[in-house]
Amino acid sequence: MPQPVVELTHVTKRYGDVEAVRDVSFQIDAGEIVAMLGPNGAGKTTSINLMLGLRNPTSGTARLFGLDPKDLKARSRIGVMLQESGVPGMLRVTEIVDLFRSYYPAPLPAAEAIAMAGLEEKARSLVKDLSGGQHQRLYLALAVCGNPDTLFLDEPTVGMDVEGRRRFIEEVAALAARGRTVVLTTHYLEEADQLAQRVIVINQGRVIADASPAAIKSQVAGKRITFTTPSPRDESQFDGLPLNSKVVDDHRVRLLTSEPEQVLRELFRRGVELHELEVAGADLEEAFIAMTQREVRV
């Protein structure tokens, strides 16, 4: 049986009184593209840090290629983008890429890594002169320059505009298509949907779902009904409806249901005033909200 890339076994991480990760177990196999999804503070970054050996579990074990994640042999096979990490501002892009290449046994040519990250035009610039989005691209170049089997990307598109994010996702998808394992965290749900074959949903330090994006969507079912109503907070009008979730913001009500016809029939029967009514298929975002509200086990 091939060695799993990542193996977390009953891992708990406590910072003081806070349990950032609670009894998490899963493994990630070679070639998988996995998105870790969850709201801010859910424990995504802590999970990644545990996989990378940047943090030690309070209990349980973390393995990378079957080794201690701190083992340099394991680290020689991974590339990493971290949140809020810094790089020396007074080096040029090519210089720092060459520096990072020297850490790995079989690196890519520097020009190739820089091109993969779309930074060719800035190759001669000092790092301190790069924009926020270009910094993220530099981190991608540094993550791929060692030609690693596996990429860990923690919130990789933070600070990018919409176009930049789209291009970035395409580039990561291209890397993944060459057989690399990719583990990324995100709270941009469409990123997970576009990229990943497997989504691990984390909330309050627990894995609450682990399935394909499609399975997660189907699990929390069907349709999204959105409308505006004069008294959206009147709970009695929604009593007993077959809903998977309900979100009210301002006067707009969003219902998730697997039986939209039934729900609408009942709302009309109760004489609830509906304006700007829309019915559409749920996307991952709705699925996600429903799951974090109700802790659905998939």
């Binding site: 394991a74 020689s76 210089e95 850490y103």
Partner: peptide, 25 residues
């Protein structure tokens, strides 16, 4: 599984550290 040779790594790292110091007037 292997790791990169240490001497070229040391050379690159020392050069980068030298540039970092030199470029802060």
């Amino acid at each position: 599984m292997r790791t990169a040779p240490v001497l070229p790594m040391l050379g690159r790292q020392a050069y980068a550290e030298f540039l970092k110091l030199l470029r802060v007037p």
